[in-house]
Amino acid sequence: MEKDNCWQCGHRSAASLFCRFCNALQPPVMDYYAFLGMPRRLKIEPGELEATFYRMSRLLHPDRYLRRTPRERQYSLEATAILNDAYRVLRDPVKRAEYVLRQEGFNIGEQRGNDVPPELLEEVFELNESLEELRGGDQSARPQLEQARQRFLGMQREADQELDRLFADYDARGDRQTLASIRALLNRRRYISNLAGEVEKELL
């Protein structure tokens, strides 16, 4: 039997979420975009994603399948789990970009030090050092810490805007070059948000 045929009635290419001939719930596809029936874009309208999530949550809720076949009960559990994962990942721009990067064969979790441009490491190192100097200080360092915080938050906003631009570029061109730029920017952003987090702790 073809992969896309309905498991229950065997109709050809019948399956999306439900068979369009016998209405049986089909085994869920693993790809988040395909599962949600959304185009593979990096820029996503949050409202649209949310609406899709709630609509599908209702359709797939395991309670609705209590009196259906055991196979459909199992699929509804699997599909609900994938739906929750897909929503959690795709609603967050950073996780969404990492998901697409991984699918396109970029390493995310196992980058070695030499994947990071030296200028960025120098910059992060210096920022850390200046933060460390302030950290040991007394109350008088507070205004400077506050300044550092504003600076890091500003850098984070810039990174987010740049990310948004790169998302649009990728959606328009679908090229690896843009994906590589996105990965580099995500690295930078992670360093910056770590620094911002460190300053926050000092200011508490």
Partner: peptide
């Protein structure tokens, strides 16, 4: 100078 971007 090396870095691990995953953990900052």
């Amino acid at each position: 100078m090396v870095g691990a971007p995953e953990c900052g």
